[in-house]
Design a protein around this nucleic acid. Structure first.
Lengths: 191, 191
DNA sequence: GGGGGTTGTTATTGATCAGTCACTCACTTA
DNA sequence: TAAGTGAGTGACTGATCAATAACAACCCCC
């Protein structure tokens, strides 16, 4: 079970490849419940080498989380560019749509949920703070919305987390419909 | 390190006592990262006996989670009773205040966060669904609010989870203030 | 006063997992 | 072609932890 497809490459390229595979694997069961062997297997690489590249399981997880935040910021930015000069509400709607498209695959969303639960580890808590700081600041600046609007925007993002974690998409009961109210599937409400 | 204070008691009383101690312990690091030994120690009881009483770690966790939801429902109910016959918005505000008072100690809130992250375990996911179903239904019935109002109420509850997990109370940066906007410390926004 | 159910413990087991170590292999440069 | 370097691995270790097994004290009712 060695390198099946790619031959050898540079350490940086390998790290990037591993991070790409790590997102869906960590998204499944979270930080504590995921052995790094699973990520090594998914990346088609030995577990020992993952430790060599990232130092520790914690280093691997925070790197994965940072990559995740990077993708989200990029999506928000691209969304905002689609409504240039529009009023705040419309910019927020465009950013919401871009975010919804990005997180349609569940993985980035669930990684956030797991990271939020692992904040007893200081490095993870700090990484989360940095990520949310960047996101909130970005939404504020690009949309020009009020504090209430931005808070509402983020709150609906959190509601997406819950809907995804509980797999409420297909549930037809009234309480589930109330929570999903106005959301696009796996996505975020437009306004 | 045996039973320090209490002598022997009935199994039911012991189970209740253990659940009381289990809430803060599970709240610290969550389901996967908390060994049942820690809960046994906190309850002043042997680890083996905890397994006898709850069958498995999963059984202990779901029982703890159910207790937590029970406390929340009780608080919501008592909150609603303080504004009888008032318009929806005021009933929601009263329920929010009661909820805020209940979760001021962080534990119940963090338990929710951890449980949301452990939904890959089917029993935990189902337990969460039942709990949220009961809460949403209760808020809807007691307040008589619209779907949007109830969704917003729950979304602000989720925002509390984030604020608590990231310890944003004392943070003075603009992005943190945006998220905390309108919330009472560790609590939930009134309206 | 003793049988039987209940409360509780100590000791152990079998598995899992983060992290390490001593290597090998391939490529580059002189 | 020999020496050096970075990529990559298999095999191990020490610790932790969920779960169990075997046993001990207690109490109530007959």
């Amino acid at each position: 079970m060695s390198t099946t497809e790619a031959g050898r490459s540079t350490a940086e390229a390998r790290k990037a490849a591993i991070l790409g595979k790590a997102v869906p694997v960590f998204a499944l069961k979270g930080y504590h419940a995921t052995p790094v062997t699973e990520i090594a297997d998914a990346a088609g690489i030995s577990q020992a080498y993952v430790f060599r590249l990232f130092g520790s399981k914690l280093g691997l997880f925070t790197a994965t989380l940072e990559r995740c935040f990077g993708l989200i910021e990029q999506a928000l930015r691209e969304g905002a560019e689609k409504a240039p000069g529009a009023p705040s509400a419309q910019v927020l709607a465009a950013m919401g749509d871009a975010y919804a498209a990005l997180v349609a695959d569940r993985d980035l969303l669930m990684l956030q949920v797991h990271a939020q639960s692992a904040t007893d580890v200081p490095e993870i808590r700090d990484c989360m703070r940095r990520g949310y700081a960047a996101s909130v600041t970005l939404v504020h600046e690009l949309s020009g919305g009020t504090r209430d609007q931005v808070q509402y925007f983020m709150a609906m993002g959190l509601m997406c987390h819950l809907i995804t974690a509980l797999e409420l998409d297909g549930v037809d009961d009234p309480w589930a419909l109330t929570l999903v109210n106005g959301m696009t599937v796996h996505g975020r409400r437009a306004e």
